[in-house]
């Protein structure tokens, strides 16, 4: 493995850990943004240029901004009494560690059967466009519908309730 991979993996994991452990919510959101950026760079290191840039555009440009807006809109939620973690944090930690142990064990045990094709695949934007408009056109349309529905739904859910109006 190249040093670039280790660097990117370190950025991603450090960002993720900081997002879980930090105290201030905005710091958590920024750390999560660092983790998203690290993942996008990992996509680029896997020669998936288009997916990496899409990850940048969607996660850093939209999701991270949405999260910080939500944090600022729920402002005095920051002053919580009784710690950052829920009462059942120990059980949650055990479950997460168990999941990681099982997946890691499975990955390490299956090293010999995993595919290992080292030739760099070419996925030009043209190929992706042709695939999206040809074989995957139905999922594309459904995703468009889903995004529209989600936008409208999010606006309606987050809209002011009418009862408070004078």
């Amino acid at each position: 493995m190249s040093p670039v991979f280790y660097l990117l993996a370190a950025i991603t994991i450090a960002g993720g850990l900081a997002a879980v452990l930090l105290k201030k919510l905005v710091h958590c959101a920024l750390a999560a943004a660092a983790a998203f950026a690290g993942l996008a760079l990992l996509f680029l290191s896997l020669d998936a240029q288009f997916a990496g840039f899409v990850q940048f555009l969607v996660y850093l440009g939209a999701v991270a901004i949405l999260i910080v807006f939500a944090i600022l809109l729920t402002r005095n939620a920051e002053e919580q009494d009784g710690g950052l973690f829920s009462r059942t944090w120990f059980a949650g930690l055990v479950v997460a560690a168990a999941v990681f142990a099982v997946i890691g064990w499975a990955v390490l045990r299956s090293g010999s059967v995993l595919p290992n094709q080292l030739a760099v695949p070419t996925a030009t934007v043209r190929d992706i466009g042709v695939a999206l408009m040809g074989r995957y056109v139905l999922p594309l349309e459904i995703v468009a519908l889903l995004l529209t529905a989600a936008t409208i739904g999010a606006v309606i859910v987050a809209m002011h309730e009418k009862e408070g109006e004078q």
């Binding site: 991603t12 850990l17 879980v20 950052l84 829920s86 059980a91 930690l93 479950v95 390490l108």
Partner: peptide, 23 residues
């Protein structure tokens, strides 16, 4: 398998965040 391990670790971190944080 190196990439899969990173994926597993990030998944576990996300799961820990979802299960343990109060916010």
């Amino acid at each position: 398998s190196a990439y899969l391990l990173v994926g597993a670790l990030v998944f576990a971190i996300g799961l820990a965040a979802a299960l343990t944080r109060r916010n």
